[in-house]
């Protein structure tokens, strides 16, 4: 990656709150036009990281740049070049759709003819053309999120930060939302997005897995699966899932619940399959099938966390 192509880069970024270290010495780079995902459970340090990148939170250690500006010393310049959408819906609930758009146009310094065009664009992309006078409070969650995204894009920022943009939104709206993110990226916008949905992480160009304030793995979704999963994943279907989980756990096989199925992580499929069938048979549990499958990101994540 050459300098010109880097949108975001951090080195040893750290943030502590008293005794608690929320983010511990993380380093990564995001190139222009990339969709970069930050995947991790709640409390892993995703929001803290994104707030430091947006110039909202002062790091306690390390440094970095966003759009070429220093995140410690030039946070106000960063704010001109980014769009930020926080985890919580943070437009004004008591303002109408149009009033919110007008207000944020003002904040981003979008005026005159551009303002009019951008307003129509936001109304279009959020599907609110006929509901511009509606008070924002009354809109459904998915629409609100689209409006919030639109407002963060009013000034056409080259870098976009999205903090859990789809939390609490129904699956259909989530998919629509992601097609918007794709469109942005196609137009050259760099998108930095945090999520705890594994399926969403699959949509990202590159991913960092963050756990307890540290990046535990980084790469494209496929790289992560191949690189970090040298062991194989077996999908097991039985008539009594919970009992089977207990039995396999007792016999030392690394097993996790996956919906109504079990995923077991094993070194050698050839020896493990008969062993699993034998153990379950001894406990009187009927094995319907055992298949080797392509590991999902969740498998990767679970394995990495267990070894962390």
């Amino acid at each position: 990656m050459n300098e010109q192509n880097i949108a975001v880069t951090v080195e040893g970024l750290t943030r502590t709150f008293g005794d608690f270290t929320a983010v511990e010495g993380i380093s990564f780079s995001v190139s222009r036009g990339e969709i970069y995902g930050f995947l991790g459970p709640n409390g892993a340090g995703k929001s803290t990281t994104i707030k430091m990148l947006c110039g909202l939170l002062q790091p306690t250690g390390g440094d970095g740049t966003v759009g070429g500006f220093d995140i410690v010393r030039e946070s106000e310049k960063i704010k001109k070049t980014i769009g930020y959408m926080s985890q919580k819906f943070s437009l004004y609930d008591d303002l109408s759709v149009e009033e919110n758009i007008t207000f944020f146009s003002g904040m981003y310094g979008v005026t005159g003819k551009t303002r009019k065009e951008r307003k129509e664009w936001v109304l279009e992309m959020s599907g609110l053309k006929d509901r511009r006078a509606v008070i924002t409070k009354t809109l459904p969650g998915g629409i609100k999120q689209r409006l919030a995204l639109g407002c963060a894009l009013l000034h056409e920022p080259p870098v976009l930060f999205l903090d859990e943009p789809t939390s609490g939104v129904d699956p259909v709206s989530r998919r629509n939302f992601w097609s918007l993110i794709y469109e942005m990226a196609k137009g050259g916008t760099t998108v930095f997005v945090t999520t705890h949905y594994m399926d969403e992480a699959e949509y990202c160009d590159r991913l960092a897995l963050i756990y307890r304030g540290k990046i535990i793995a980084e790469g494209t979704p496929t790289e992560l699966k191949v690189q970090y999963m040298r062991r194989s994943v077996l999908e097991i279907e039985t008539d009594r899932t919970f009992e089977a989980l207990e039995v396999l756990g007792r016999s030392g096989i690394e097993t996790a619940l996956f919906g109504s199925l079990l995923h077991a992580v094993v070194d050698d499929v050839e020896t493990a399959t008969p062993e699993i069938e034998r153990e379950l048979g001894k406990a009187g549990i009927k094995v319907i099938r055992v298949d080797k499958i392509m590991p999902s990101l969740e498998d990767v994540f679970v394995t990495l966390i267990e070894s962390a």
């Binding site: 704010k79 944020f104 904040m107 981003y108 919030a148």
Partner: peptide, 10 residues
């Protein structure tokens, strides 16, 4: 929570 959005603008 509206302040967070506001202070992320220039």
């Amino acid at each position: 929570g509206t302040m967070e959005q506001l202070i992320s603008t220039p």
